[in-house]
Amino acid sequence: MTTQLAPSIYDFSATTIEGQSINFSTYKDKVLLIVNTASQCGFTPQYQGLQALYEKYADRGLVILGFPCNQFGQQEPGSASEIRSFCETRFGVTFPLFQKVDVNGKDAHPLFQYLTKAAPGLFGTETVKWNFTKFLVDRNGKVVERYPSLAKPEDLEKAIQKLL
């Protein structure tokens, strides 16, 4: 009998908003903050805080990965180019953005299936509750914390500093 090892964050790949496939092994030895995002959400202004964290800590190894998602109130209806343009012009986003994904259900991106199992939410629930749920991953690829939508990016700064 063979035992199958649980996947690592580095076993996944995703398609950037520009259409390129990226293997997450690219992010080895980096601290990752993975966020499901939306352009028409009450939490959308968090893009500004995420960008500020990225600018402050990218040179120390922080990478923020934004995954647009339209599963919550249809708050991300745009095309990839519309989403990218909105994020760049409205919030000056320079951190990596990816193609729109599902984060819940049978069509959830495998990365989010992994993240939600590795860091369940309140009362052990694995589903993502809303836009701007954040997953913090250490330099070894271990998911260390899940933060709800209400957690502002600046609230995560101390936890990020510890991992850097």
Rank of each mutant, 00 (worst) to 15 (best):
R60G: 08
E82P: 14
R60W: 02
C87L: 14
G61L: 02
G105V: 09
G66R: 04
L62D: 03
P77R: 10
F98N: 05
L65Y: 02
G42M: 11
Q71R: 08
P110L: 04
R90Q: 15
D29R: 01
E55Y: 11
Q40I: 13
F12C: 11
K28R: 15
Y27N: 02
F43M: 00
S39V: 14
S13M: 09
G73V: 14
K100I: 06
G42S: 14
Q46Y: 02
T37H: 11
L32S: 00
I22C: 06
G105M: 01
L50R: 01
E55A: 10
L111D: 08
Y57H: 13
I22E: 05
L65I: 03
P77A: 12
V31D: 01
D102Y: 07
L62C: 02
Q99C: 00
T44M: 09
P110R: 01
A108M: 03
S85Q: 15
E82I: 11
T37G: 10
S81V: 14
F91W: 11
E76A: 01
G19Q: 03
Q46C: 05
Q99T: 03
I64H: 01
F95Y: 15
Y27W: 00
S85A: 15
K106G: 11
P77M: 12
N23F: 13
A58M: 10
R84T: 11
V31F: 01
L111M: 03
S39M: 08
E88I: 05
K30E: 04
D29G: 06
F98G: 00
F86D: 13
D11I: 11
C41V: 07
A38T: 04
